[in-house]
Amino acid sequence: MVLAATGEAASPCAFASLMGAYVLRRVAQAVPLLVLMTMVVYALLRATPGGPMSMYEADPTVTAEDLARLRAQMGLDQPVPVQYGRWVASLVAGDWGWSFVTKRPVLEMIGERLPNTILLMAVTFVVTLAIAIPVGILSAVRQYSWFDHVATTVAFAGNSLPTFWIGLMLVMIFAVGLRWLPAGGMYTLGAPPTIGDRLRYLILPVVTLSLFDATHYIRYLRAALLDVIRQDYVRVAYAKGLDEATVIRRHAFRNAAIPLVTAIALDLPALFSGALITETIFAWPGMGRLFWEAASRVDYPVLMGIFTVASSLVIACNLLADLVYAWLDPRIRYG
């Protein structure tokens, strides 16, 4: 994959109209994809043994008559395809359904968790890139130097332990042991909200996630930069007498960033679906935990809602990735 220095796109106008048509076509393709996805997930959900009625098992006052009534009230007495059809019909009408357990609108429940997840993931994202970009560049520029070796080793090590293990260790050491930081939650309960307090609660989960994520971007960037540095135009730039920092900044990094940006765009959906395990360890009330709770209570409407949101985001971000890629690399044609 040889990436030429960014040239001029054919003509901005033609580009825009081509792109518009392309986006439209991609969106049109995405719709059946989404429908198929919801069908498959619905079928999968209904194939799981057990079901929402299990929440009543401990209660001997709930009789078979009560259960039959509850099933009917939840619409579970209908054939599965009919239930699916109803779900789709109300979704199209803008109604995402109501949770079996909380008796609340699914969209409202997702809406409560999404900001928490976005906060955690956005901070993680910034921290990750703040580490990955300088380290990745230095590693590439000083390939096989001691810095490169140390950075590579640390990056590999961070990527070699299960996240849950890193998280648990951090809690053991910094919360239970040293008591420097809180073990979990988003802020001190019953205390006035301050930014400092919020930050204290962010440190451990963000470190856990960044340690893992940074590795990927460091390696991505290092490889991409190494690729670019060997290209003729970079050699030409050096030959022109430009200093290294300028060459890297003006020429090499800009081109090496193309695969990085694409990779980032593809990772974006994860920002919304949350980090299930990290959220679980640090009691962070995000989307991942919402899913886990809904899954353990077999709350079909909530599960379907989360799947639909998450899949739409994946599809959207894939499209975004392709667009960014095309925009950065004009040799790609919308065929």
């Binding site: 799981t48 043994p49 057990g50 079901g51 929402p52 009625m53 299990s54 929440m55 009543y56 098992e57 401990a58 078979a64 259960l67 039959a68 099933r71 579970l76 353990s296 209570r297 077999v298």
Partner: peptide, 16 residues
């Protein structure tokens, strides 16, 4: 072993 929602489910859920 299976999750409690599956194991402890009801007749209508086909719980074992």
């Amino acid at each position: 072993n299976i999750p409690s929602a599956s194991l402890l489910g009801t007749w209508g859920d086909n719980a074992p």
